[in-house]
Amino acid sequence: MVKVFDCPKSLTDMPTHYCPGCTHGIIHRLIAEVIDELGIADKTVGVAPVGCAVLAYNYFVCDMQEAAHGRAPAVATGIKRVVPDGVVFTYQGDGDLASIGCAEIVHAAARGELITTVFVNNGIYGMTGGQMAPTTLPGDKTSTSPYGRDTKKQGFPIRVSEMLATLDGPAYIARVSVHNVANIVKAKRAIKKAFEYQIAGKGFTLVEVLSTCPTNWGLTPKESLEKVQRDMMPYFPLGDYKDIEAGEKK
C-alpha cells in the first residue's frame, strides 16, 4: 500500500486549539503541504498574529515569530530584510490584517516586500469572542453588532484583495476559499503560487482565504461552510486579483 495522503512534515504533531470544524486547521495544513513540496522548511520563518492563530507558532516546524496585533507584515519585513534568502510568511486574521494592521499590510504590499501573507477572512474576531470585524457582512449579528451590522453606522466590509491589487508592489493577490474539497485544492494552488512568486523575487504576495467560525457564527461546522458559499462569496468573490505573470484580472 502506498500513502496517498498524510500529515505534511511541516506541521508539528501538536493538536490544534481551534474549535471543531474551524477551517484554520485546513489552511495550516495547506501551508505546510506547500512548504513540504517546495522543500523550504529549513529556510522558512513564519509570523503568527494575535487572534485565533496566535498559537500558530506551535503548529509549524519552521522558525516562527509572534507579532503584536496587526504588526505581522512589519515584523516580516524586518525578518526578510535580514534573511533575504529565507522564505517569510505571515498568517493573519481579518481583525489583525484589515483593522489594526491595515496600514502595515498596505505598506508592506506597496513596498513590494518579498513576503507571503495568508489572510484568513472569517468576518469576525474569533479569539476574543465574536466581535464585529472589518469584513463582517452587512446585517450579520456579532457581539458588537448585536442588531446586525448597520452599514449606516458601522460602515461596509473591506475587500482587501481588490484594495491591495490596485498597488504596484504586489505580484500575486488571490482570494480563495476552503468551503469544499474542490476549493481546498484551488486554495493550495494559490498558496503555492504565492510562495513560488516570493522565492522568485517577483514581489509581495497575499492569498485571502474565506474561512469559517462555527463557534462565534453560532452555526454547526457544516452550516458554516454553507454560509461561506451563500453569504460571503457574493460579497467577496473568489479569483486572482493580481498576477504579474498573467496580467491583472478586472
Binding site: C7, L11, T16, G25, I26, R29
Partner: peptide, 19 residues
Amino acid sequence: IACAACARICPDVVISVEK
C-alpha cells in the same frame, strides 16, 4: 476509493489514506 476527500477537508489531520 482513496480519493482522500475526507482527509483534505479535515481541519485536524486526523485522516491518512493509503492505496
